[in-house]
């Protein structure tokens, strides 16, 4: 690697960007280590795409610094471009060319040479399951195929850092899962991935580290587990049949009880290893002959995290509120 003094693939410091009076980025800081998958999570208009565009040298920041692969995005854009692959929000493919032609064009523009370009194209087409349609024009491709050829174009130069801007937005569930598997596979080859997403599930499944962004600021960061833990522990909720059982249950678990609600005859117990505790609790209840109405395991989701942090969810309403700035 070119910069051995650091294992930071991306370092962003106090990044600011405004369009007129509209502050799109209001002082963003974060770092990504080599081989990590980082998810920038936030609603539409939060500033995710702006960050990706700055890091991939397509846009310049007003203030702050950003280095990618050890190169400053402003002073050494050429070196940055040689280190990265970019898959934007809209599949950046040439519809009149075939999948293979698209791929080879980009390979040549990365200056890989004819033979190397051909070899790598073939390997990527095989790897992304695109051999069969490779000689058809991209115009005829499905949404999922388009995304995959787009991703292949970003991968052809074996970039050490990959930017994926909403890689699964608009895909059907099956194509989404395929895409997740591919992205996971990339990280296994030591590629650093920075992806943006509005989907909690996507961030949760893929990311080593999540940075939650809202209105141009980082409002939380950490591993998915850390973020979820910040909201509170996993808990089991027990609802019992009658009031006697309710009191018995309270006695039974005593100090472990997180909260209780006599009206609903429900109580919550903190749990550290969810499913194992579930069995234990169930057998304890059975031994004490307590009849239960329901027993369920609750885990804080990233949705809960987001709601707790911002006071709004990432849902459609949130999108509407910030829609004015989405095209930036």
């Amino acid at each position: 690697m070119l910069n051995t003094s650091t294992d930071r693939a991306i370092a962003v410091k106090d990044l600011k960007k405004s369009y007129g009076k509209l502050k799109v980025l209001d002082g963003i800081d974060f770092e990504v280590h080599r081989g990590e998958i980082l998810a920038l999570l936030g609603p539409n208009g939060a500033g995710k795409t702006t960050i990706v565009r700055i890091l991939s040298t397509l846009l310049s920041q007003d203030e702050g610094t950003a280095t990618v692969n050890g190169f400053d995005v402003r002073r050494e854009p050429g070196a940055v471009r040689s280190s990265i692959g970019l898959t934007g929000q809209y599949a950046a493919v040439d519809e009149y060319l075939t999948g293979r032609e698209n791929l080879e064009m980009i390979g040549l523009l990365y200056r890989l040479g004819e033979q190397e370009t051909k070899n790598r194209s073939q390997k990527l087409l095989e790897r992304l399951d695109l051999v069969e349609p490779s000689n058809r024009r991209v115009k005829t491709y499905s949404g999922g195929m388009r995304r995959r050829i787009d991703l292949a174009m970003s991968l052809i130069a074996s970039p050490s850092i990959l930017f994926l801007d909403e890689p699964t937005t608009g895909l059907d569930p099956h194509s989404r899962i395929t895409m997740w598997e591919i992205i996971k596979g990339l990280a296994a080859t030591n590629v650093t991935v920075l992806l943006t997403t509005q989907y909690m599930e996507e961030a949760d499944r893929l990311a080593d580290k999540i940075i939650v962004i809202d209105k141009g600021s980082v409002i939380a960061q950490g591993t998915p587990t850390e973020l979820k833990a910040s909201i509170g522990p996993d808990h089991l909720e027990i609802i019992v049949k009658d009031d006697d059982d309710f009191l018995n249950t309270l006695k039974l678990f005593e100090t472990d009880v997180l909260q209780n609600d006599p009206k609903r005859r429900s109580l919550s117990i903190i749990t550290k290893n969810g499913t194992a505790d579930l069995k234990k609790v169930l057998s304890m209840l059975e031994e004490s002959k307590i009849i239960i109405d329901s027993l369920s395991l609750h885990r804080p989701t990233l949705d809960d995290v987001f709601l707790a942090l911002t006071g709004h969810s990432t849902s459609v309403e949130a999108e509407r509120q910030t829609n004015a700035s989405t095209t930036l």
């Binding site: 280190s83 890989l112 990527l124 074996s158 050490s160 590629v191």
Partner: peptide, 15 residues
């Protein structure tokens, strides 16, 4: 799934 060999693309650029 086969994995691609990772080489720095900078080295593959011809002069």
């Amino acid at each position: 799934m086969t994995t691609l060999a990772i080489e720095s693309n900078i080295q593959t650029q011809q002069r």
